[in-house]
Write a protein that binds this DNA or RNA. Sequence first.
DNA 1: ACTTCTCCTGCAAACCTTTGCAGCCAACGG
DNA 2: CCGTTGGCTGCAAAGGTTTGCAGGAGAAGT
Lengths: 387, 387
Amino acid sequence: MPATIRDVARASGVHISTVSRTFSAPHLVNPETRNRVLACAEHLGYRPNRAARALITGRTHNIGLIIADIANPFFPPLIKAAESQARQRDYHIFIADTNEDPAAEEDLVHALAKQVDGVLLCSPRMSNSLIEQLSREVPLVVINRQVTGLPAVVMDVGQGARLAVEHLTGLGHRELALLGGPRGSWTNREIRRAATTAARAADASLTVLGPNPPTEGGGIAMAEQVRRTGATAVLAYNDLMAIGLMEGLDSLGLRVPQDISVVGIDDIALSRLTRPKLTTVATPTAAAGRTAVDMLLQHDGSSSARAGRGGGRTTTTDDRRTTAQVTLQTELVIRDSTGVGPAASAVRPAAAAAADRPGAAPPADPGPHGHPDPGSATAATPESVAS
Amino acid sequence: MPATIRDVARASGVHISTVSRTFSAPHLVNPETRNRVLACAEHLGYRPNRAARALITGRTHNIGLIIADIANPFFPPLIKAAESQARQRDYHIFIADTNEDPAAEEDLVHALAKQVDGVLLCSPRMSNSLIEQLSREVPLVVINRQVTGLPAVVMDVGQGARLAVEHLTGLGHRELALLGGPRGSWTNREIRRAATTAARAADASLTVLGPNPPTEGGGIAMAEQVRRTGATAVLAYNDLMAIGLMEGLDSLGLRVPQDISVVGIDDIALSRLTRPKLTTVATPTAAAGRTAVDMLLQHDGSSSARAGRGGGRTTTTDDRRTTAQVTLQTELVIRDSTGVGPAASAVRPAAAAAADRPGAAPPADPGPHGHPDPGSATAATPESVAS
DNA sequence: ACTTCTCCTGCAAACCTTTGCAGCCAACGG
DNA sequence: CCGTTGGCTGCAAAGGTTTGCAGGAGAAGT
């Protein structure tokens, strides 16, 4: 029923190879012939069969994208950016969701391996060794993780966490808590490491809680424990948890930021909608998606090594393989969920407090029609964290 | 480098057809042979090449899912449900995002046509005739739309809209507004029709505004116009718009629900997090995803007869195929964004309102975080809608 | 012992496209 | 006039798998 290349060839009176070339190498065919072929193809509604093409070229023009949880608002901007970047190069992205399950991750890589040219592994929860092993089956680019020998794009959450902690200690907080994310997350380890270091440098204490599911529910559930730590400020693994935590604290009768300050990570769209608006670390998710696609495509676009003919095993020396690791900067976005700590509240005059907490008029007057205040001035699209 | 069926055949000393059968029709091969083959395959890390298989069988074991906007929280539950349902049957879902662009929809269908066995078209913005035409190219199941001759699964938003209007008029509201969604949306038309009818039946007036982008920004932008209608209660096309509208009303100094009631549609997770919590019409998104996959696969091949759930099912059997149209019920979830209207405020006690839905929180408690913050409202990410 | 069956396995065609190679023709240089 | 070049097109192999058909071996029936 579907028109094949043969039908077009018959209709336009040329050989199938000419039809093929009309599409894959137009400059090789006479303009007159080409037009005739195109007309016939159009008329017959012909579209090349990608499976057949993939079979012979060995390239599917598909890219797999494996993520932990589509429902996490962190991912959509990354997905969209990756999709549009891929589409520009005539590739298509296949998305798969692992539900935060490391075993599902492995299965998915296998399932995708033969029908994509490469896989973007976003915030994997697997072990490094397993990832390395899988990378022998299909080209891999990891996002939010560093695996030796594999191309990677990571967002510098460590730096973000440091900025967040410095912001909090700068406000006078001395008792901090870190609401940790899921086990197996590279991001989680980075945050913990950086936050610990920064807290120590500022002579503040830091209580680490976790691991926890990186969801709103995970945040709500930990409210009570957070209170028990006696911390006056909390850094959460991501915005979703931070928002959940604010919910939970609210039910406990604690006010944010008067009683306790909360900082998230990711800057998802939602973090502008909560009351109070969430102070958070913005991660360049869209850029990460674009970059990852670029790295994957460059990586296998250059190596046009054909399969060895004649049974001989052609061992292409891969030592030329450029496995870059790109690090994207993060940025602290100060909104309304952080305020002065107890240590400073007695010392600092009200004016100073007001300057930090934009509930009142911030220093740079935002005006009635939303001049972005210094904190929310980031032009980055809302995105969230993972890994 | 990747092991093929031929390698396995050589290693286990059988013909490739036997290897093939070991995987696709195990009962046809001697257990002893089978085990030997499986062992070799395992050892060589063999995985069947899906492209080659697709080429000959004509079935890719892939399903396309085209949606308007991944960033809209409405979709993830649907996607997840569809994915898990598909995975159970050894199918894989390929997701694509159209950015609310009807032209992109058409392109995507074409692009996917040859590499999937069928496409789930979720909340399409295309014309019916175009959809019919595309359905000749690849099996289609439409979600949130009715196209004659095509299998469809729709959520009964009409009924939901009616319940919402009855809820509002029951609270004493007489001046209603409907915040419409995007042009081309079947859902939008259904809502409008049902809301108009219900309002007339209750002797209330209904002002229809739109079309609008189905995003938070779309809601924010319409706040002023909504106020000008003089309505005391608003039904929005979806939750995102409702939430945006609440933002906008807030900036205008109007309190929800004391001054104006707001109802959304979809019941996205976010609607529980706003202050006040959003009253909304819950749509069974996950069930829709599952059902759509079932319909596509049953229609397509190995059918396992899943009985229709709560919804009604109309099967029109034309000559060859049975094209069912499944309708899924919706449900009104009363939270805090609706309160008594001016006409009834003197007459009806709040208890009467609460009686509409046991267990729902009483209206009129914005919660501790309900401080309005003028000038907050820009920078909405493009989000989207459901049909 | 001969047929008939049942089980299993091998053979080869077919799916649709790409691509190196060869051939054709016209034009051009010498 | 011949050799060469360049532009275009046809030929055929190849890619990995499925599957109808045929064949072989043994078992069961007679």
